[in-house]
Design a protein around this nucleic acid. Structure first.
Length: 564
RNA sequence: GGGCCCGUAGCCUAGCCUGGAUAGGGCAUCAGCCUUCUAUUUUUCAGAAGCAAGCUGGAGGUCGUGGGUUCGAAUCCCAUCGGGCCCGCCA
C-alpha cells in the first residue's frame, strides 16, 4: 500500500489541485505535510485558516493515523505498524530486487575508462571507473539493459613518444614490472630526454606517419607495447570488479569517420575553408566552429568520435548512450552531440555526457608527464594494506587467505565510496591520508554495520518466516521506526540517483541508514530480549537493513562482507 | 575576449532542477557513554589511560557579495568577486 499516494488522492479530491508535492516536515511534526500557500493565493484566504479547515475535511485516509493542522501546513502521521509491515514485507519478498524497477526493454550503452595506452591508470581513472560502473548499475536498476564498453585511445603522437623512448633506451627488454607501468616509464623518460634532445619530438612525428603507413617494424613495436599497456589495465580494473562487454580500439576505425564527413560535405552540412580543412559551423548554436578534417586530409579526434557513435548504434541498437568523461571535455561533447544532430543521427537526442570534476592533489593538478600522479595500482595497494592492518588489530588467529580477502573488500570499498560520495560535478581534493581514514562517512562504516547485522543473523539460526512477519506490530521504539522509514524510501533514492546519474545520492542514503541502524543496535537488543515476538520482529528488521545495505552497496560496486 | 562548472562552520559535504516551518551530515574539537588501569575488602565516589571501523550531547553558519522576483530565496533572475575547466586543424 502506498500511503503517500492515498494522501495525494484525497487531497487532490478535496482541493481540486492536480499537481502538488507533499513535503517531509521537520523532526516530530509528522511524516508528510501539505503546505497551503498556493491554495491561499487561489482562494484569497489565509493559509492557516485553509489548513485548519482542510484538516477537518479530509476525514480518514487509509494508512494515516493522525491529521493535524500546524500553522499553514496540514501534517499527516502515517500508521507506523502499517508502514513497517508493508515495507519489511516488500524487502523480504523482493530481496536483491528491492528498489529496482521492472524491465523496460530499453538498452543503454555506457562508455567509460577510455585510457591512453601510453601510461598506467591514475586516480582520475579511478573516479571515472567508479562512476561509470555505478551509473551502469543504476541504469539497470531502472529496468534498462546496459552494455558497458571501453574505448582504447591507442594511436596518436602520445603513443609514439613511449615507443621512441623504448626504441632508444629499452634494449628490447621485456617488462620486468607490471606491464603498463613498464610502458609508462618510457613515456616519462621521453619527456625527460626530449628537454635536452628536441630531435626526439621530430622522431615521434615521423614515427606516427610511418605507423599510419603501416610500416611493419613500427606496427610490430606498437602492437607489442600496446598489448603490455592493455594487459596492465585489465589487471587493475579486474581488481576493482569491472569487466567490459566490449573494447573499442581507436586504431581500428579512426580513419572511417572521414566517410561520414565527406557525406556531410556533399550535403552542404559542412564546408571547406581556404586551406582545404573541412569544418562545421556551430556559431549559430553558441558553440565554436569545429575542424573535422585537417587541411592535409587527416582526421581529428572528433572525426572518429562521430563514427564511434554511429558504430555503437549499429552494433547495439541503443536507446540511450552515455559517455562518462571528465569535465575538461564538456565542450567536445556539446560539439559532438550538435554535429550528430546536424547530420540527423537518429539517437542524437539520447546522448548524455556524464561529466565529472577533476581530482586534485593538495599541492595542485596532476600531470602525468611530470610523474606527480597518484598511481591507481599504488593507491589500491595502499588502501588494501591499511585495511589489512585494521583487521589484524581485531583478529589474531585469521588465515592469511582470509585476511587478504577481507582486506581487499574493505580497502577497495573505502576507495570507491570515497570517490562516489561527492557530487560528480564537483572537483574534489584527494588527500590520500584523509581518504584512508576509517572514520566518518566511509565505505567501511557501512560495511562494518552490514557485518554486524550478518553476525546477529548467524547467531539466531533458523527462524520461522511467517511468525516473523506476524510479529512486526511489536516494533514501535523510535529507533525501530526511524530505521523502517528509511528502508521505505530506498526505492525513491535509487530512482533519483539513476535519473540524475548521481551515485552520491546512494552513498549519502547508506550513511543515513547505517547511522539509524547503529542507534537501533545500541538501544534495542535483538538476541537477548525477553519477548519472543519482539525478538522475531527485530530479527526481521535486521534482515531488511542488511538486505538494503547490500543492495545499495552493490549499486556503488562495493561488496558487503559477512565478517570484517 | 567568449562559453561551461563550482563557491554552504577551521576543513569536507547534503539540500538547489521541482522556492516554504529550527540549512541536514562527517572530520577535527569539547563533555559523557564504553574499555582498561590505579587506589579501595567490595560497591559507590575519585583519578589516569585509550589511533575508539560503536553510541549520546555541546560548541562551531554573513548559505561568496550586492540587487531583483515572491507572502516567503541556500534554492529562481540579473550583476559582481573568487576558484576550476575549455575555446577551428591535441586527444
Amino acid at each position: 500500500m502506498d500511503i503517500q499516494l492515498n494522501i495525494k488522492r484525497v487531497l487532490s479530491e478535496k482541493t481540486g489541485l492536480r499537481e502538488f508535492i507533499l513535503e517531509v516536515p521537520p523532526e516530530g511534526m509528522g511524516d508528510y505535510a501539505f503546505p497551503c500557500f498556493s491554495l491561499a493565493k487561489l482562494r484569497k484566504q489565509s493559509p492557516s485558516i485553509i489548513a485548519t479547515a482542510l484538516a477537518q475535511e479530509v476525514g480518514k485516509i487509509a494508512g494515516v493515523s493522525q491529521i493535524k493542522a500546524v500553522g499553514p501546513y496540514v501534517n499527516f502521521f502515517v500508521d507506523t505498524t502499517l508502514l513497517l509491515t508493508y515495507t519489511l514485507n516488500s524487502i523480504l519478498t523482493a530481496k536483491e530486487d528491492y528498489g529496482t524497477h521492472p524491465k523496460t526493454g530499453k538498452k543503454v550503452v555506457s562508455e567509460y575508462l577510455s585510457p591512453n595506452t601510453n601510461k598506467p591508470l591514475h586516480l582520475g581513472h579511478l573516479r571515472n571507473v567508479s562512476l561509470g560502473y555505478s551509473i551502469s548499475r543504476l541504469c539497470e536498476a531502472l529496468g534498462h539493459k546496459v552494455v558497458q564498453v571501453n574505448l582504447m585511445n591507442d594511436r596518436g603522437i602520445h603513443i609514439c613518444k613511449s615507443m621512441v623512448a623504448y626504441k632508444h633506451f629499452g634494449n628490447n627488454k621485456a617488462p620486468d614490472i607490471k606491464s603498463d607501468h613498464f610502458v609508462g616509464n618510457y613515456y616519462v623518460l621521453f619527456n625527460e630526454k626530449s628537454k635536452t634532445h628536441p630531435e626526439l619530438e621530430e622522431e615521434a612525428q615521423q614515427m606516427l606517419i610511418a605507423w599510419e603507413k603501416g610500416e611493419k617494424e613500427i606496427v610490430d613495436l606498437w602492437r607489442k607495447m600496446n598489448s603490455w599497456a592493455e594487459e596492465g589495465f585489465m589487471q587493475t580494473i579486474r581488481r576493482l570488479g569491472i569487466e567490459f562487454r566490449k573494447h573499442y580500439y581507436e586504431s581500428k576505425f579512426y580513419f572511417k569517420g572521414k566517410k561520414v564527413v565527406f557525406e556531410g560535405l556533399k550535403q552542404g552540412l559542412f564546408e571547406k575553408d581556404e586551406t582545404g580543412a573541412v569544418l562545421v559551423k556551430l556559431e549559430q548554436f553558441g558553440l565554436p566552429n569545429k575542424v573535422l578534417l585537417r587541411s592535409d586530409g587527416t582526421s581529428v579526434y572528433m572525426t572518429q568520435d562521430i563514427y564511434l557513435a554511429i558504430l555503437k548504434h549499429k552494433e547495439w541498437k541503443y536507446d540511450e548512450s552515455l559517455y562518462v568523461v571528465a569535465s575538461e571535455q564538456n565542450m567536445h561533447f556539446q560539439q559532438l552531440f550538435k554535429i550528430l544532430e546536424i547530420i540527423k543521427f537518429p539517437r542524437a537526442e539520447s546522448l548524455h555526457h556524464i561529466s565529472y570534476g577533476m581530482v586534485l592533489l593538495p599541492e595542485g593538478k596532476m600531470k602525468s608527464r611530470e610523474g606527480n600522479v597518484v598511481d591507481a595500482d599504488e593507491l589500491i595497494d595502499d588502501m588494501i594494506s591499511l585495511a589489512q592492518h585494521e583487521i589484524m588489530i581485531r583478529w589474531k588467529d585469521i588465515t592469511h587467505e582470509e585476511l587478504m580477502e577481507r582486506a581487499r573488500i574493505i580497502g577497495i570499498g573505502a576507495l570507491k565510496f570515497h570517490l562516489l560520495k561527492t557530487d560528480p560535478l564537483k572537483d574534489m581534493v584527494f588527500d590520500p591520508k584523509e581518504s584512508i581514514s576509517f572514520d566518518g562517512e566511509t565505505g567501511p562504516y557501512v560495511q562494518y554495520a552490514h557485518a554486524r547485522a550478518a553476525s546477529i543473523l548467524r547467531k539466531i539460526g533458523r527462524t520461522n518466516g511467517k511468525k516473523m512477519v506476524a510479529s512486526l506490530s511489536k516494533l514501535h521504539a523510535p529507533e525501530e521506526v526511524a530505521v523502517a522509514k528509511l528502508l521505505a524510501i530506498y526505492p525513491d533514492k535509487v530512482t533519483a540517483a539513476a535519473m540524475q546519474y548521481k551515485p552520491s545520492i546512494i552513498a549519502h542514503y547508506l550513511i543515513e541508514l547505517t547511522h539509524a541502524f547503529s542507534s537501533f543496535y545500541h538501544e534495542c537488543p535483538v538476541l537477548d530480549v525477553g519477548d519472543e515476538e519482539l525478538r522475531l520482529a527485530r530479527i526481521a528488521l535486521v534482515m531488511c537493513v542488511k538486505q538494503v545495505q547490500k543492495n545499495g552497496l552493490a549499486l556503488l560496486g562495493i561488496e558487503a562482507p559477512e565478517v570484517m
